[in-house]
């Protein structure tokens, strides 16, 4: 019996967004790929202290934690700005009527 090859895709849109950010930043020379895999494997280790990883959401959660850490460590972005921007996105979702485009207030670093 032959099962058709399943399409390669991301299980959730944010998985793809997180993935693309790392690839784009690497292509832009912000970090090298071996640096990335090293930092990423540290994030996975930190996450699996609580429970074994299922390889889906938790994998991309570690991916995002790695992005945040690398970018903050190198002063590419400030941790404070990320926290504020996340709060702005949260506010925007909570105040935008369902079905309307969500536009958060931008955080500008000084």
């Amino acid at each position: 019996m032959n099962t058709p090859t399943p399409p390669a895709n991301f299980e959730a849109p944010w998985h793809g967004q997180a993935f693309a950010l790392a690839v784009a930043l690497n292509e832009a020379g912000v970090f090298g790929w071996s640096e990335w895999t090293e930092a990423f494997s540290e994030s996975l280790d930190a996450l699996r202290k609580d429970q074994p990883l299922n390889g889906a959401d938790d994998y991309y959660t570690a991916w995002i934690a790695t992005l945040e850490r690398i970018l903050c460590d190198r002063d590419v972005v400030a941790a404070q700005s990320l926290a504020e921007m996340k709060a702005n996105w949260t506010d925007a979702f909570n105040t935008t009527p369902h079905g309307k485009p969500v536009h958060p207030k931008m955080v500008h670093e000084g």
Partner: peptide, 30 residues
């Protein structure tokens, strides 16, 4: 109001907003 996305999804959005605003990534390229 709109359904609030999960915590990691909000963090991705925050990263993307800041990086795009700084000109470090291009939304079309993403």
């Amino acid at each position: 109001h709109s359904l609030l996305p999960s915590d990691p999804e909000l963090r991705v959005r925050a990263l993307e907003s800041i990086l795009v605003n700084k000109g470090l990534v291009d939304p079309a390229a993403l």
